[in-house]
Write a protein that binds this DNA or RNA. Sequence first.
DNA 1: AAATTGTCGGCAATCGATTGCAAGACATAT
DNA 2: ATATGTCTTGCAATCGATTGCCGACAATTT
Lengths: 352, 352
Amino acid sequence: MLRDSDNAGGRREQQVAKLERIRNIAELAHLAGVSPGTVSRALSDSGMISAKTRERIKALAREYDFRPSAMARNLRIQRTGAIGVVIPLGHETGQHISDPFFMTMLGLLADALTERGYDLVLSRVIPAGDEWLDRIVDAGRVDGVIVIGQSDQSAALDRVAARYRPLVVWGGYVPGQVHCSVGSDNRLGGELATRHLIAQGCRRIAFFGDDRALEIAQRLEGCRAAMTAAGIGDQLTVFPAQLVAETTQPDIAEYLGEHAARPQGIVAASDVVAMRALRALAEFGIAVPDDVRVMGFDDLAIAEHMVPRLSTVRQDLDSGARHLIDALFRRMAGEATDSVVMAPEIVIRMSA
Amino acid sequence: MLRDSDNAGGRREQQVAKLERIRNIAELAHLAGVSPGTVSRALSDSGMISAKTRERIKALAREYDFRPSAMARNLRIQRTGAIGVVIPLGHETGQHISDPFFMTMLGLLADALTERGYDLVLSRVIPAGDEWLDRIVDAGRVDGVIVIGQSDQSAALDRVAARYRPLVVWGGYVPGQVHCSVGSDNRLGGELATRHLIAQGCRRIAFFGDDRALEIAQRLEGCRAAMTAAGIGDQLTVFPAQLVAETTQPDIAEYLGEHAARPQGIVAASDVVAMRALRALAEFGIAVPDDVRVMGFDDLAIAEHMVPRLSTVRQDLDSGARHLIDALFRRMAGEATDSVVMAPEIVIRMSA
DNA sequence: AAATTGTCGGCAATCGATTGCAAGACATAT
DNA sequence: ATATGTCTTGCAATCGATTGCCGACAATTT
């Protein structure tokens, strides 16, 4: 690594201060010959201020490019204008925030929140103990919280949800759960994927995924149900591949290579897992879909780009994000909201 | 806090309030029979408070699970404990926040900031006018700002950097630039990629990328230099593929299909662009690397997963993120910092 | 016993913007 | 000229935690 020798820029950072800087509303008020209250009203277009003074004050503010302190405003208004987005990495250490699923969801949420004039405060937490969510909620830094994925923390979520309203969770729904969730019908999704494989003639089927996470467990459940319904419940094997951990790829490969009766179909708990499976299969020279069929789950953008293009279960994340935001803002307004379970759709491409 | 095990139903969200809720430090002080100041000192382990009273107050706080308001604290301390991470989407509308590059960088920054006890406030802005950065900086919501990518906003960055110290930018370095940047030697990277293609026998070479962004322009410059040095400067064509826009794939395909003298090598401005190129080539049945060789740029995780695995120019994002954070904190502490230019490395896999 | 040192904790100002209340300015109606 | 009303604007309290300064009291020294 090479540090630049001629830091041409750093020298003249200090430009001539054309005007003395204004630090707060009171100084501006003094300058304009009015009271702080008037300035506040003028800048926020509220209250009844004559158009003349308002424009004069605004012009002055622009000239000195002064913007009132958000911190002070927050304190007075008792609103932060920020929403916390929390990614709990509970059931596995290897999971990384750059998981494409999180990122896709995060992007959608960022856009939606920006549109509504809210900031997005990102927290990536590895839940230790069960205070992690309480800390975020009680710190008073945000007006509401969106948790992406229940991981294995349903209990903590329920406990906090019981006392803190503006909280919504992306993930699975379980009857009786206290927290408000938005997510797909994971069980149905798993069932659809599996039924498709069976319809294609698969009998020995493997499920790849770590079922300690609620959503994954539900997908597995659907998979199992479909197998049982087809009378081949005993042909299911579960391979607890970590969702994304780097270390799992060799594991998958080993499994596929050594397994005596190699599965004819694979139901992956997510597109990311499917991607790893595809790579492993390619390395073993096992043809997809001819030798083994692979179904993903999520239908992220990357599904289109795999070779072969991935057949998968589509979750409509756009609409999911909209539901999350919508529910959150209703809850912030004091309304109660029900959980949302969206219908998944199966997308058939080339891998199954 | 009461945690009855059989609260299975979401019915009674309102648990019996065993204790009245405490809203601020003064109430806690009243309860403890001390002054607010004492409570503040006790909870923050500062000042000289006898261990006895401190523990008493802390216990009380725990019992009522009270946490002092961050907003009030921020106002008084004049620190927010948050860092802004800004992604300007200046030169193109199609670019999406879920671009894997942003996401990788964002993940690294999130981890590093969490580690230092700072929140991360994410902003995705489409610069309109040249006030976008001023607004973020002056709102007083954050203690410092990291901008990911200069896009075509170098002027705005320089202007703000001249008056606002705690600002660092991921991107290219240009002699004389005012803002502090951390990034790779893009020119050298482009040169290395191109030299490799030439060494493999390519003569007709295409550069895929939108050179309105500073970094991309530098990569193109390196590419051009290598061509010229090899005496084949006239064999370079530039295809201004948008970095990630969904619409570009057909464009790329069309170009490759119709172009009379199809290029023998492609230098992509990023791994994401390379990925789209690979898909297009696959659809046309053009073999990589036999018919066309492809070089990426970034070496994201996905590079490993493409088919064929992507040869690319590696940017060490881990170390880049560390440098960004390091420079930012130094600047927040009042130090001046120089820009950092990191040496890129070429990674040869299967595509070139 | 008086003086000195040292701990502990209270008082009150402060950070900067917002807003209910009321007073002042000005115009119109009586 | 007085009364009534409408617009504007100022005053001052408020949001909740932090912290410099000072006083009260105990422990130690002379």
